[in-house]
Amino acid sequence: MTAAVVRETPAVAVEWTAACPYRCLEPERGVVALVGGVPVAVFRVHDGRVYALDNIDPFCGASVLARGIVGTRGDAPTVASPMHKHVFDLRTGRCLDDPEVVLRTYPVRLRDGLVEVGGLLQVGGLVEVSGQG
């Protein structure tokens, strides 16, 4: 199993941005939110959980990940980029077809029916989720 290690440095550095009402998220599809000027893909999977990660597909540089097909590979909830079908683990941002490549993931919370995405104020990552310890 992939061990998700979450390192958090001072909470002041996380700024929450509202994406949209939870009910507007179509199950097993994504939307794009602008979080601190960065396009972030927000997905609602079949069991109702929400994940957020970079919208830019690192293999082609286009801002398209939110338009991919959501599904599973083994136990991992996934999205396949619509461009060249690279599959990413929504929990970790890791590309399952090329494990060297990892997308930044963002924390998500629900406030008053609104989905909020935690943006990063500092490069270097205050919330960093990395796979395999």
């Binding site: 179509e26 097993e28 599809r29 286009a62 398209v64 338009r67 097909i69 619509p82 461009m83």
Partner: peptide, 19 residues
């Protein structure tokens, strides 16, 4: 059914290299 479609069918148009 909407969630099953590839982006092309989902947006009824063909995706290009720059999105």
């Amino acid at each position: 059914q909407g969630a099953l479609q590839d982006t092309n069918d989902h947006l009824l148009a063909n995706i290009q290299r720059n999105g």
